[in-house]
Amino acid sequence: MIQFLIKRVLQAALVMFIISMFCFSIQDSLGDPTREMAAMSMSDAERDNLRERMGLNDSLLVQYGRFVTRALKGDLGTSYFFKEPTLDVILKKLPATLELVIAASFLIITISIPLGVFCAIKPRHWFSRFTMAVSVIGISIPVFLTALGMIFLFSVTLRWMPSFGRGETVQVWGSWSTNFLSWDGFIHIVMPAIALSSIMLPLFIRLVRAEMLEVLSSEYVKFARAKGLSDGPVYLKHALKNTMLPVITVGGVQIGIMVAYTILTESVFQWPGMGFMFLEAVNRSDIPLITAYIMFVGLVFVVVNTLVDLLYGIINPMVDLVGRRQ
């Protein structure tokens, strides 16, 4: 267990190191940050002065050395736009994104599992065919279209839902304020969560269905029937748990990917999270923030993978990660 975690920590460090190198090496093509920070009419001399003060005139190697030295002390640079340490900026934006991802994951899990299971058990039922057909369409509709469609239907035309932002949030702890504890916060998160889940949902339904179908054709399900078990325990106990194994592996990673997908959803809904922050950082050539965000996302991927592996290990007795003795 400890070994496993140590390995993952080393892996995370390596991932972040590689990402930081990558970000530095492409720095030049991210644009000139001074352009966003100063007037068009500012003179070249002043601009160069500014670059000098920002350390942008040093060679990449010198800049990278400086970055690594600071990073080892926990300082990932200061955002040009927010004028705060990038890590603080990201951590401030993290709750909004995390809540959005949690809400979307909740939708995905509660909808895809029952639907997927139903479609696997009754593949010829009209509802299954309907679900599969809709999911094909669902996969092919881009997120921003879903989002804008919902905004124009539910916000503009029907005026049921707020069109943007997080609304009134309730502060929980530190910079963490939540959408889940107030009605206003809750209705603000509904449409972004649906939009975000809309990409993954069809995928998950199909995944659950496919895995369930495979499990249903397995020997142990046949044996469970031969033991005299009725449909209920066969589907919900024997088949479902086994279905969940691959779904967790694929799904966990997909939920990690969803952190990246929030970029689109957040910018359409003006959701003040990390994704939107990143998009703006790219527009503004806020290089320290871009670097820190990508490193952070790399970390998120490693963490999510670790959690998925741990969860997998808990469900699957054949995997001995958590040091369970045989």
Binding site: S218, E219, Y220, K222, F223, A224, A226, K227, N242
Partner: peptide, 25 residues
Amino acid sequence: ILKVRGSRVGFIFQDPMTSLNPLFT
């Protein structure tokens, strides 16, 4: 037939590796 399976007719399948559900004791 549910009442026949298991209680009146017992089954043994070919591969013991796959006829037991791996996730349950």
